[in-house]
Amino acid sequence: MMMNLFSSFDPTSNFNLSLNWMSTMIGLLMIPPMFWLIPSRINFMWTKIIMTLHKEFKMLTKQYKSQGNTLIFISLFSIILFNNFIGLFPYIFTSTSHMVLTLSLALPLWMSFMMYGWINNTIHMLAHLVPQGTPPVLMPFMVCIETISNLIRPGTLAIRLSANMIAGHLLMTLLGNTGTSITLMMINILILVQLMLLTLETAVSIIQSYVFAVLSTLYSSETN
C-alpha cells in the first residue's frame, strides 16, 4: 500500500544514488540493433518522421536557406518522446514527470533565444512587446502583459509536459489500486479501461513531445 499517492513518481535511492534517473539513458538498449546497422523498416519509419518534422519546423522558423536549424528541435522531440514512452512501461521511472528534467530542457533554450534576440535584434524584440494596432493608451499595459507572458514561457513549457505526464499515470495508479477490492466482473471492465487509458497515454506522450518542440520552434522564430 502506498503511503503517498505521488510516491510512484519518487526517484527512489539505492546506495545514496537516484538510480531511477538511469531510465533516461538505459532505454537506448531497447532499440533493436537492426536500427543501427542497416536501413530497416524502423529506420525508414523514423527517417520519415524526422523529414516530416524538418519540413514543418523549417516553415515555422522561416529560414529556408539554413539546412541544420531544425536539428536541435528534432533532437528535443526525440528525447522527450523517448522518455515519455519509457515511462509507460511498468516499474520504470517516468523522468519527464519531474520539473527537474522538463525545466532543464525549457530554461536553457528560452535563455539562449532571449540572449540572441536582445543582443542581435534589439529593435525587433522591442517591437514584439507592443502588438500591431494597439491603441496608444493601452501600450504601457500591453508592454507589461507581453513581458510577463515572455518571462513565464519556460515555466509553462515545463509544467505542461510534467502535468500531462503525471495526470494520466496518476489516474492509472488510482484505478489499479482498486483491483484488490472489486469483483471478477469489475476486474475485467477495469482491465479494458486500463488498456484504453494506456492507449490514451501513448497518444499524449507523442502529442506533448510534439507540442514542446513546436512551441520551442515558435519561440525561436520570434527572435529573428
Rank of each mutant, 00 (worst) to 15 (best):
M111E: 07
N150H: 12
I152P: 03
V193M: 02
F141Q: 10
I145T: 14
M172T: 05
T94M: 04
H128G: 06
M2I: 04
L105Q: 02
N69K: 04
L17E: 15
M142R: 11
E146Q: 12
G179N: 10
I191A: 06
L161C: 10
P33K: 12
Q67R: 15
L184I: 09
I189W: 09
P140L: 02
T202F: 15
L197H: 08
G176V: 01
A167M: 08
M1C: 09
S8H: 01
N20G: 09
I123G: 09
T70D: 02
N14G: 04
V137E: 11
N83T: 09
W110C: 00
F35K: 00
V193W: 01
Y219W: 06
S95R: 00
W36I: 02
R41L: 15
T134V: 13
L170Q: 05
L174W: 04
G68F: 03
L71N: 08
M59V: 05
T147I: 11
M30P: 05
N69W: 03
M34C: 10
M2Q: 08
F113G: 02
L157P: 00
P135L: 08
N14R: 14
S78K: 01
I80G: 00
I145S: 05
L129W: 04
I145R: 04
T47V: 07
P32W: 12
Y64M: 12
N4L: 09
M34L: 08
Q67I: 13
S205G: 08
T178G: 06
K62A: 07
A167Y: 12
T183M: 05
M22A: 13
P135I: 04
H128M: 14
G133A: 12
P11Q: 10
L105F: 03
L129K: 02
P140G: 07
P108D: 14
M2W: 06
T102F: 01
T173P: 03
S220L: 07
P39M: 06
A127I: 08
N150G: 11
N188T: 14
M99P: 01
R160G: 09
A167C: 08
V204M: 09
A203E: 07
S181E: 07
H124V: 11
F93R: 00
M3V: 14
N150A: 05
H98S: 08
N83F: 01
I148K: 03
P108E: 14
H98W: 01
L5E: 06
L5M: 11
L103W: 13
